[in-house]
Design a protein around this nucleic acid. Structure first.
Lengths: 107, 107
DNA sequence: CGTGTAAGGAATTCTGACACG
DNA sequence: CGTGTAAGGAATTCTGACACG
């Protein structure tokens, strides 16, 4: 649920292409980064590189803003969502360890 | 077998990233294009854009060249391979039309 | 044949700031 | 708050050519 697509998460897209793909302006794309909603990689030279997942994220962000949601709120949502998935992953890992030591109980 | 990955075939990667991803020089990447082994898109400004599929193709090409295969031969192989898959697709399409008109015979 | 390189120019991207509201 | 824009510079990419072999 995080690493099944080797392409989707690779940071290889320049801001110019992201602009084409999303229809957003460079200004918007950079601003959402400033507000910590998106996290592109950087080349050694300092240019931003986005993944397809980032592109999709940007579209979602833009939609919410169009609906009047502020960047701060969007960020809070993202943090809550991350916490939820992290806890879920943690729970699964613990369960995996239990299964490894005491055997898997299928049902 | 050609459009199941929406990411793999999108031409969004600059030559600089392709260089990193493949370990090839820009010179090599451009040369393989000159020899019609690879077909990047272009931005309005003229910059090349590659897909992940292109990146994989480039690695294969580079391996063959290392093995002493000439670009001309690699190109011939590619043409033969394309012909084969095209014929296969054509055959499937004809069969599909027959099935549509006369019903599908499962076995 | 396949690849390196120096050359000059054009396209791309970057940051910080001013503006509006 | 979110976005546009002009400014100046730096990084990226482009082409055509000379070189080697």
């Amino acid at each position: 649920m995080a690493n099944e697509s080797s392409y989707k998460d690779k940071k290889v897209i320049t801001i110019g292409i992201v602009k084409e793909l999303t229809g957003l302006s460079e200004r918007q794309i950079r601003y959402y980064e400033e507000r910590k909603l998106i996290f592109p990689d950087r080349t050694p030279g300092g240019s931003r590189r986005y993944s397809f997942a980032d592109v999709e994220q940007l579209v979602e962000i833009a939609n919410k803003i169009e609906d009047g949601v502020q960047t701060y709120e969007i960020r809070q949502e993202m943090i809550r969502e991350k916490k939820r998935t992290d806890e879920e992953a943690h729970k699964k890992m613990i369960q995996g360890q239990l299964n490894a030591r005491f055997g898997v109980r299928k049902y």
